[in-house]
């Protein structure tokens, strides 16, 4: 943004394809829905805190799904929570993205075989854009997940819907 400021310092007009402008705006202000389900949430909080600093990417926590662009499913999704997650996802406005953080929400994790109460992957109930592996993933890994998501948003077009969007 600093570069842009300098480049267009003398005029207020920027000419850019709508698509690029939209994608740039979207990827630069990924507000995420603030809720954690298990130990992954601790790493998510660490990522948001000053040391790793989500904020420098324009990533901010929001307390309402209606204000959020991206949902980080950070932790073990129990069968009881699954329907709630689905409802929260439905309350988010388009365009909406989902980052599945950690083995539990990717596939059930350590509960994949004998955990009677755990959903075996959050993608059974909502579409997932980026999977971040790890148990739990370190903050760098979650940031990498966000960079992947930004990459994805950069390549979006206005006319076509997301390939796996609902």
């Amino acid at each position: 943004m600093g570069l842009l400021d300098k480049k267009y310092h003398d005029s207020n007009i920027i000419i850019v394809p709508l698509e690029n402008a939209l994608n740039w705006a979207r990827k630069s202000s990924l507000w995420y829905e603030q809720f954690g389900l298990a130990c992954c949430a601790i790493e998510m909080m660490a990522t948001a805190a000053s040391h790793y600093d989500f904020d420098r990417f324009g990533i901010l926590p929001r307390s309402s799904p209606r204000q959020a662009d991206v949902m980080i499913v950070a932790g073990t999704v129990t069968m009881k929570m699954a329907s709630r997650i689905e409802r929260l996802y439905e309350q988010m406005s388009e365009p909406r993205y989902v980052i599945s953080m950690g083995s539990c929400s990717n596939s059930g994790g350590p509960y994949w075989e004998h955990g009677y109460h755990v959903l075996k992957g959050v993608d059974k109930v909502i579409p997932v854009d980026v999977y971040v592996p790890g148990c739990p993933p370190r903050p760098e890994a979650l940031l990498e997940g966000f960079l992947k998501l930004q990459e994805r948003i950069t390549n979006e077009t206005v006319v076509e819907s997301k390939p796996d969007g609902k």
Partner: peptide, 15 residues
């Protein structure tokens, strides 16, 4: 002797 149900609210439990 618990046997897990196969689906819950239409979602498979992995049983």
């Amino acid at each position: 002797d618990y046997r897990q149900q196969e689906t819950y609210l239409g979602v498979t439990t992995g049983a």
